[in-house]
Amino acid sequence: MKPSLSELLGGGAMTMATGVLPLLEAHPYGRGNATIVMMLLMLAAEEAEKQADVLAAENARLRGVFARAADAPLPEDLGAAVRAAAAGRDDSLRVSALQAENARLRGVLVALHTATEATDAPWGVALDAEIWSLLRDGAAARLVQLPPM
């Protein structure tokens, strides 16, 4: 069993805190940079553990929204983009692939969200609410926590 990526990054942060920062007392600029790097390592330790899961879950939920919007009276181009996005899948669990697909889906979401805001029809109101629920939950899921300082 080898250390996980999160453990490696967390260990690096601990080394910065206990083995590097104390040596930089007389170098405020370097100490400041080292402190930020330590914080980035802490964030990365959390991100490494959850990033693929967060992206895959969000991509699936985005496709669910698009599936429910597939029959909405959208402009032709947007309707086609929504249906295509709904039919997609994550073929790779590499973070870069998940991110690329997430960006593609979020681009379609911006256009769909704009369209729902332009109508008071029940389908638009319902989709608008569902999109905000998705965005709220997605933003919360992506958050990374700084340790108490």
Binding site: N33, I36, V37, M39, L40, L43, W132, S133, L135, R136, G138, A139, A140, R142, L143, V144, L146
Partner: peptide
């Protein structure tokens, strides 16, 4: 490559995304 930019671009983006989303939702 100032690490402050990396930190701001990551942590602060996520925080403000969350602040806006919770408010408007």
């Amino acid at each position: 490559t100032d690490p402050v930019l990396a930190f701001s671009g990551w942590y602060c983006t996520l925080r403000h995304d969350d602040i806006i989303a919770r408010r408007l939702a």
